Amino acid sequence: MEVGGDQWLCGWRTRAAEHRVSQLEALRRFLDEKKQPILDAMASDMRKPPFEVELSEIVLVKNEVNYALNNLSSWMKDEFVEKNLVTQLDTAFIRKEPYGVVLIIGAWNYPLNLILVPLVGAIAAGNCVIIKPSEICSSTEKILAETLPSYLDNDCLAVVTGGPAETTQLLENKFDYIFFTGSPQVGKIVMAAAAKHLTPLTLELGGKNPCYVADESDLQNVANRLVWGRCFNAGQTCIAPDYVLCSAETQEKLLPALRQAITQFFGPEPRESPDFARIISDKQFQRIRALLGSGRVAIGGQTDERERYIAPTVLADVQPSEPAMQEEIFGPVLPIITVPNVDEAIAFINRRERPLAMYVFASDSKVDMGWEQGPASLPRA
């Protein structure tokens, strides 16, 4: 396979605004006309509820398409800049040029969103694109491979299917830009491959996102948001709250509120709920189930290997050294670690790898300001 360079710019076709607009509009038609096959594919892959598919996979991508179409003309204009001593006699401006051929490697947890949102940006910028959907979501991969090319310019878009071997072979080629979403472990492999060709890239990786709950919080409101964020897509979301930090007293008050929220959202038997997805694979199921031995199971804990079902679960009194705190959970399991105060919570977070997001619940604005004034390395969400 030979890729890369301006020879893939389809006779400069992709540079034209008309071509970019036509491709974005075609992508929007794909989402409209293939909505039901997309819903069916994701139900097959991970029993993802239709509402979750529409919200997180279809609507978000359509919003990106609409945003790009509304702003494309201004994005493509030259940006004039202030002159300095060297450029006083010149006309100085910035012109946005396409990179060339972009490789987009998607992830299985949002198999449509994490391919098509980067694709929108790549098309809007005038690039040719090769997309590599996740083979783990085989039904969604099939939709992208067999249907999407019929909507887009096949001289400027290609879909590559397969597993790690095919991805490894793909990465041996020189691309002009790479966009990867996935785990840090695979991200290192992608970055090493890009470095061989000095290819610029974007890595969107995971992390353990902390949540601090202050003593004076509205705990039912907190519980509702935690359960929604932790159980959406069965917890298989990179920005989901991964663990809770709070005082021992708040933990005991928060547990019944979490139990009530789970019942309200998914009924007394979440396994029977049409609104609760399943774990993507046997491998991920076994990995998550092994984490349930951390702390004590205060809520949930039921599993069904045949269905790859793990109930919405809360682990109380978890210790930092236990398995649930050694990796991103990526499932409907929420550990609670008790800390005496907000300063200890900040110190706990700063001793660990930087997460993608952080969530703070506090009724007192001074508590929130304490996070703002904390160490510069502390992220916020």
Rank of each mutant, 00 (worst) to 15 (best):
T14H: 06
T14F: 06
A16L: 13
A17S: 07
A17W: 00
A17E: 06
A17T: 09
E18A: 11
E18R: 11
H19N: 07
H19W: 15
H19V: 00
R20W: 02
R20T: 07
V21S: 00
Q23Y: 01
E25A: 08
R28Q: 04
R28C: 01
F30G: 01
L31D: 05
E33D: 15
K35W: 13
I38H: 06
I38Y: 05
I38E: 13
M42S: 10
S44R: 14
M46H: 04
R47P: 00
K48V: 10
P50S: 13
E52G: 00
V53I: 15
E54H: 11
E54P: 04
E54C: 13
L55E: 03
S56M: 10
S56F: 12
E57H: 06
L60M: 08
V61Y: 05
K62P: 00
K62V: 01
E64H: 14
Y67T: 11
Y67W: 13
Y67H: 15
A68S: 03
N70G: 14
N70E: 14
N70A: 15
N71L: 02
L72I: 03
L72R: 04
L72V: 03
S74G: 02
E79M: 03
F80V: 11
V81L: 09
N84L: 01
N84F: 02
L85W: 02
L85R: 02
L85E: 06
V86Q: 07
Q88N: 04
T91R: 09
A92C: 07
I94R: 04
R95I: 01
P98T: 10
Y99T: 12
V102Y: 04
V102R: 02
L103I: 14
I105C: 09
I105W: 05
I105M: 12
W108P: 10
N109F: 09
L114I: 10
P118V: 04
G121H: 03
G126Y: 13
G126Q: 12
N127G: 13
N127P: 13
N127Y: 09
V129N: 02
I130W: 09
I131G: 07
I131Y: 03
S134A: 13
S134Y: 04
I136N: 05
C137I: 08
S138M: 11
S138Y: 12
S139R: 15
E141G: 00
E141R: 00
